[in-house]
Design a protein around this nucleic acid. Structure first.
Lengths: 408, 408
DNA sequence: CAATAATTAAATCACTCTTATTTATTATTG
DNA sequence: CAATAATAAATAAGAGTGATTTAATTATTG
């Protein structure tokens, strides 16, 4: 069985690759998603605002938004007075409009998160382990989701729109690094985890690369302003990335776009190495362990690391040099506006890394390029699970990138 | 005046960035483009084929294709018999359906090409120079296009759909390399060449990066089979690239996507350098000149280079190492299916380079990546001018990437 | 009260879909 | 080999959907 392309995907992944025609329901669907996307971006918008922004007629927008209000996806806000003319009525997303579940499968732990339509976390569960097994993971999901659903009203439960799973690319190749038995890893390789989970639930189940998911969380829930094209790095036990093009998460033909951990970079002494070998928490842990420093709190308390001394400083330095290099290389493939860095680390450390990366970029020859600005991620440590949850949200309620032309 | 984003673009570039709604004419436009794209890809297709491929109803396809036939864009072929049922009538693109003009502005010469709807070259003009000036370029375009149009019937002339200009990113930064006076280069910087050309013609004028254009030519006219995602390298006086995502040329938010010449790569001795500094014809020329070998025929006869000896061999070796590295780095940003290499060189040399690149990739650590296959470009030396011409074709007749959902 | 802007009802228009029909061809039967 | 059945392509007619246009209503400012 071919791995990869069949690993990631959605219920309809198979047919979506084909070029399809558009009909009226496709047109309406597109316009509805457009309205929801704009309202999400702006907080709240009046129908007349939407009409201006989309070029649709006021009447069309009126019909669409009334329907979205009836469906419980939009909430009427207080009329805005003070301007000439009839006061406008901003429409905001209804937090209770839909719910989404995200699952992150990591090297040391799994996370389940339940979020509402605005991306607020409503419940979160964790499960730690030495290494993940399919059986335990499915048990965790089964009981965890049951517990979460018990906290919802019947009305809310009906509005669960899907489960998104964020997991690493070819997790079964961890044999060496994770200290897991080969037969467990082979189980991961040979099992279709998406299908197994789909069998448990009536809502759709999606699977996506974990770092790509984190990137999706930044896109949908993060504070990115008008940013529409960026490259994203998530520094966890390993390092990975994601790519946003034209306001849309781009996961690539095989779902492995943004495999930035595998980017070749000049290592210590100029010898080429992979980004993941210098810019990951696992490397930091190893260097601490080598000095006899116990560092398991790196995994357990990402909100606050204790004083780490010079090992941390030199890790930040080498990791940032490599990240700077990877950003420049990425910018020569796609002219990203920004590079966003987040990870399983305290915000203060993240801020130091961003600063270090910015100054490291200054030392690289960037002629012929527009260098993306470097910023911190705004979602933080739970970005992967949140990103999993963002997947059904995007699939169901958000718009694709290239706007179909409106015609004249 | 801000350079870059305002440099490249189309007549409607300003508004197209906005998220627009879709209406019926947009839907029809989309479906028409879809039909034309599929017919272009397949050579000729019956209405029933299109209906199956698009998911549109047979009747809808019938109406659309009849109209395209009346407009002279499609040609009815001989009915296909031998299968059960009524014989199908394949519809092919009408070569006379539309005409396009491409202009390449290069370091040593400009090229004008007139192509038909199938991409066949109908006329080609060249203008050599030490360095390009805006005034001479516009004169060349004016007289060249007048000459080309004189060869067309009145009917054909009416079907010219646009002019596409392929020129380097920030051409005015050639001050050092091209030996051109600063004031000429500043003229390039401060002038809006697109507007100047647009003033001369009633059809739309587009401008795009030259290597991106070459990539577009490969996409639209090349023999790429079902390839839908690839990274493209064009090795000319300088080196540049392009990116195709989901079957569509991706030029990026500032039009500088695929600036692969600026990709940092390990140079001779492991010191980081830019791809352009090892993999460009200018570098080859310099190394030949250093040995006292006159090499101006590199520019004048790209179809056949004479015996070049060891300098060529070592150039191919270093260039290929760097290309291999750039391909791996690109693959960690986007999981391209293929890397396509073309350039201003004889096909035999191109073939040697591709082979060398393939074996060089084998020596790089590619864990966690799916390595794209490496292939030769199929358009060849005139890819940039052809790509310019492909720009109005794409804008007017081809489909965007993400298929708008068809709805249920 | 005049001007302005938001909103929406009603009528209209454009485009696709469904259904049914016509036409052309191959496959099968006696 | 002629007659019949099966299959597939193409299209006409009518229904349905959704956006647009037009015009009216409402709420506010100055």
């Amino acid at each position: 069985m071919e791995a990869g392309s069949s690993r990631y995907g959605s219920p309809e992944a198979a047919e979506s690759q084909q070029l399809r025609g558009t009909n009226q329901s496709g047109m309406r669907d597109h316009n509805e998603r457009l309205v929801l996307s704009l309202v999400r971006q702006s907080g709240a918008l009046a129908k007349s605002d939407i009409a201006r922004m989309t070029g649709l007629s006021a009447q069309t927008v009126s019909v669409i938004m009334r329907e979205l209000e009836v469906e419980g996806l939009l909430l009427r806000q207080e009329p805005v007075r003070g301007k000439i003319g009839q006061p406008s009525i901003p429409m905001a997303l209804n937090p209770e409009g839909a719910f989404f579940i995200g699952l992150k499968i990591g090297r040391r732990s799994a996370e389940l998160v339940l979020i509402d339509f605005l991306g607020n976390s409503r419940a979160m569960l964790q499960n730690s382990y030495g290494y993940p097994t399919p059986r335990d993971t499915i048990d965790f999901v089964k009981s965890g989701i049951a517990e979460m659903r018990a906290s919802l009203t019947r009305e809310q439960d009906k509005r669960i729109a899907g489960l998104g799973v964020a997991m690493p690319f070819e997790l079964w190749n961890w044999v060496d690094t994770a200290g897991a038995p080969r037969e467990i890893m082979d189980e991961w390789r040979n099992r279709d985890i998406r299908a197994d989970l789909q069998a448990l639930f009536s809502f759709p189940v999606y699977v996506q690369n974990d770092a790509t998911s984190a990137c999706g969380a930044e896109l949908v829930f993060g504070d990115i302003g008008t940013l529409r094209d960026f490259v994203y790095f998530y520094i966890g036990a390993f390092a990975g990335g994601g790519v946003v093009l034209n306001g849309r998460l781009y996961s690539g033909p095989t779902g492995n776009a943004g495999a930035l951990g595998s980017m070749p970079v000049p290592g210590p002494g100029g010898r080429p190495t992979q980004l993941i070998d210098v810019a990951s928490i696992a490397v930091l842990e190893k260097s601490l362990n080598a000095k006899g420093i116990e560092a398991s709190y790196l995994w357990t308390s990402p909100e606050e690391w204790s004083d780490l001394g010079p090992e941390l400083d030199s890790w930040i330095a080498t990791a940032s040099d490599a990240l700077a290099y990877a950003i420049v290389a990425s910018a020569s493939v796609i002219d990203f506006e920004s590079a966003v860095i987040d990870g399983w680390m305290p915000p203060a450390i993240r801020a130091r890394m961003v600063q270090a990366v910015q100054s490291a970029i200054g030392k690289i020859d960037v002629e012929g390029l527009r260098i993306p600005s470097v910023r911190e991620g705004t979602v933080g440590i739970h970005a992967r699970a949140m990103g999993g949850a963002s997947l059904p949200l995007s699939e169901r309620f958000l718009i694709g990138s290239t706007a179909p032309s409106r015609g004249v």
